[in-house]
Write a protein that binds this DNA or RNA. Structure first.
Lengths: 204, 204, 204, 204
DNA sequence: TATGAATGAGTCTTCATTCAT
DNA sequence: TATGAATGAAGACTCATTCAT
């Protein structure tokens, strides 16, 4: 009884739809994606989608949440590592590992942000919140590295990632990501090396 | 005849449509923009649009061309400057000047690329070509600075711009652009200061 | 068994649904009302509705029956009164008392009739039957008043009520009902006053 | 040229649609009528309807306007007659002539009002305005008959019409209209006969 | 060239009804 | 009996594209 109830609850069609939405919206973009596309990907009849989500926008919101969830999982995993350097390096490493997917569809958060930023219906704020989570986490790492300009560095790092994701996608060249990440690794090293010197930025 | 042709040509409706397309597509995105939107912005009757452009995609292409044109103009202007440092700095300065617009709609090339990259109909290649022009030009500057890793640096620079444009847009905060550009200026300075070393990255 | 049956029967979900249907259909109209609306009003899960009513139309039928029931109750109460004049006056008085509700939603029977008359699925006959009950009762009263034209007078009276209900509703003005009812009272008085005089109708 | 332009303008598809809407909405009711129904009745492709009317509600509004137009035409014709008595009698006569149609679908204005009164989107106000035109005209006639209670009489007259239309429709019996109208004629006669007395209402 | 009008395929959304448990 | 979930057939509305003039 309780079991069947649990099963039902865990049947997770809602989750399946959200996951499908996240995947399809990443691959095709928000506007060109039809509800039928998402329903098909989730193997759910179109009409049934509306039992779980009242509008297409709610599904998009769910997809954003799914990305947020993924991000939180990533951050949790990173936080297992002992030092901020290692954590940042692990983040970079993840980017490289995803380079093929990025070459195909770009960064899920970034492309979503790019498209939704043109709207003013709340979805733009939702994706911004996701982006901010990553930004805040990065800032935390730089702070732990003793940098007073942690926010600025975090912005630079995430911007670098978003930008190289875009170029990687635009030129369909995963190696762009690999090369840029190597550069970013050296940059992070440079921040932690020398005693007071640290940042090339601080050199002046 | 040639005269009337010239008159027609200079009636410039085609150009007006392309310019309107460039503007509206930047502001609203490709998919959500209707032909009627563009026609209205250009003050041209909808039916008439098809005399100049056979399909919506052709209009998008024209908008891309318009952006390319703008970019070529920018590059031509930059090339007037005597040194690569100055040219790069002037480029950065332009980015800062546009920060309000960027906060509203993002980088025209970048957002277009982000949206079109999901398609495989040729438009994705067109926008990539525009991006490449900028990249090549930046590479040229770094080469003139004597950098062997000019391509990599160019990619890093343009990625930084695309990324910060995205964040500026996502957070609707023009100051993100200003701060990041200051950082990039210091970075460029650092590349030209030291004797043969040049790159902070190369320091290891 | 009979007991549990009784219990079930007296659980009164069916009645609750019929009552909710009567109320909601009066307030919103038949076509715009969804089964979910009625189920919600009755605090019954949607799926469960179909245990009691095979189709939406059956629920509408039940709502009509509920109105018929109410009408029969009214008539029973009126019939307690000693004279036809008093009974008719009491009927009018009831109309005035309901004028606020009428201003909001019109006469329950009338609006239902108006909407269902456009259909030919039996529901139109059901609501006609309800209307006929009232008409027959009124005819009875006029007959008791010794009027040979009782049917005609009954039709006139009920028509007057239906019409003023419609106007009261259309103009959202309960006072229209009050004024017209006063006029009808005088009219009824005139029917019973002088011997041959009374009504303009009787004049011939 | 001007001719073809005129033809186009007078092609009157908009009018055809409005007329079709008026007819079909009268026959079927607002909610159950689909745009396709109206389009078919007007012999216009469905998609084309939206060139003339942005929403279904606008079409309903147009249908209301069409009824208003008809009403204005009727009033204009009535006003040709020399005396208020004749004008009112002519109005009644028109009702009788339409009794078959009324038996089928009810009064166009009344059924529309009944259905739209349940909504609060402006359409309810539109149909109320139409009803008011008729009411005001009737009031004018009674005023010309020297009645101080002209408004009340007008309300009574129109209510009587709306009510008998409803009953005529409900019982599918055109004779109800004929009989009631005869009664109303006698009533009007009674208002104008006697010296100052006239009305049964005024008798008290 | 210019333009209002026409067309139809496609998309979101609703809802009565059914089903599995 | 009870109920959450499922289903599919509409229906309103949009829009790129075409047509007639």
């Amino acid at each position: 009884m309780t079991d069947s109830k649990k099963v039902r609850r865990t049947s997770g069609k809602r989750e399946r739809l959200a996951a499908a939405a996240a995947q399809v919206l990443h691959a095709q973009g928000v506007a060109p994606t039809t509800l039928a596309d998402i329903a098909a990907a989730a193997e759910v009849p179109v009409g049934n989608v509306y039992y779980y989500f009242k509008t297409k926008d709610e599904l998009v919101e769910a997809a954003i949440d799914a990305h947020a969830q993924t991000l939180r999982g990533l951050i949790t995993a990173l936080d297992e590592l002992p030092t901020p350097e290692e954590r940042l390096k692990a983040l970079l490493s993840g980017w490289v590992q995803q380079r093929e997917l990025t070459a195909q569809y770009g960064c899920p958060t970034g492309t979503l942000a790019s498209e939704l930023d043109k709207r003013a219906d709340g979805l733009d704020r939702s994706i911004a919140a996701v982006m901010r989570v990553l930004l805040d986490w990065a800032e935390g790492q730089f702070t732990q590295l003793g940098r007073a300009d942690a926010r600025e560095l975090a912005v630079a790092l995430i911007a670098a990632y978003q930008g190289i994701s875009l170029l990687t996608n635009t030129f369909r060249d995963p190696e762009l990501m690999a090369t840029e990440v190597r550069r970013l690794e050296r940059w992070i090293d440079s921040l932690t090396e020398g005693p007071a010197t640290g940042d090339d930025d601080a050199r002046e």
